[in-house]
Design a protein around this nucleic acid. Sequence first.
DNA 1: CCTACCGATCGGTAGG
DNA 2: CCTACCGATCGGTAGG
Lengths: 195, 195
Amino acid sequence: MSKTEVKKTKKQIILKEAATLFREKGYSATTMRDIAAKVGVEAASLYNHIKGKEQILSKICFSLADNYTTQMALIVVNDDSPLEKIKELLLLHIQVNAMSSPLASVMNDEWRHLTEPDRSEFLVQRRTYESQFLAIIEDGIADGSIDVPDSKIALYTMLSSIRWLQHWYHANRDMDVESVQNTIIGLLMKGIQKK
Amino acid sequence: MSKTEVKKTKKQIILKEAATLFREKGYSATTMRDIAAKVGVEAASLYNHIKGKEQILSKICFSLADNYTTQMALIVVNDDSPLEKIKELLLLHIQVNAMSSPLASVMNDEWRHLTEPDRSEFLVQRRTYESQFLAIIEDGIADGSIDVPDSKIALYTMLSSIRWLQHWYHANRDMDVESVQNTIIGLLMKGIQKK
DNA sequence: CCTACCGATCGGTAGG
DNA sequence: CCTACCGATCGGTAGG
């Protein structure tokens, strides 16, 4: 291993341990000394790898937001029907919230502790994602495959309905992943489809 | 107004302003000086009305949790069908999350900052509520009106799907309340009902 | 309800 | 990566 690789690994460890603590206690209640203890160094040593506490939060939030943005870009341009695209997006959300656990919790619940200009940039990225999702729902309404009174309410209801996985799944790892996916997607797709 | 009434009002003001700040910045990032400034007194004066920061959080969480517990008790014993009971519970959640805004946000997102024994008591109360809700879903499966592969997953998906209202509604007060209710309840009820 | 103030702890820096 | 330490700020108390 080269020197840069070792350094990169240590930074990743810091981000991972920080994310776990942020989920447990929240960003503000987590101290640099808490993070240092989990990593196994003194608090002062963290600053050789990261700029500060705010940068840790920023790195976590944007790494996952970028992932969502990338996946959405692929789904927007594929040839699937609106109904199929929505199913793909729901699957993406379920997998992220269930699997990459602490990252998803931090991005969803702690982003408000971002300071400018990160906070604004994050919100722009999220708003873009949501409007792309909304356009797909409206395509489905236009072609008659989807029937909901209000597309925005349907969007937020679907996105929100998956969030509980981030708090629940890692305590119930015995649960079958596919059965979770099938039940949630089944319920929501049946809920928006034209009878 | 008697002296005790005046005192009670001031305490209520403190709880209300604190809840608003807790929703905005989180419990840990909110200081007693922040709360005092909103109330219009010095930080030290708050302690004439409340014991401390932890007690403010505790009062907020339990006031709303008690409300849910009371409403659930009424619905459990009424003569409605499982499907109707679920509709009533969803309506309760929508109204609480949309209307009593800051209280709902704090109970949902900041309860983990409760210290023992409050934390355990809160979790017991929540677990009881959830198991009563679950029993109603299972009644509906038993009588053939509900069709979901897994009742627990359906429960958490429904409860979670309403949470976005607490962040969104107070920024969109122009939205018609009934249209919000109808869209969410329509989507979820269609999602769980037997075709 | 205020002024004055406390011990503890925070994020972060200096210097090696 | 450490020791030593900083200015700021925290929740809360004393005393009136």
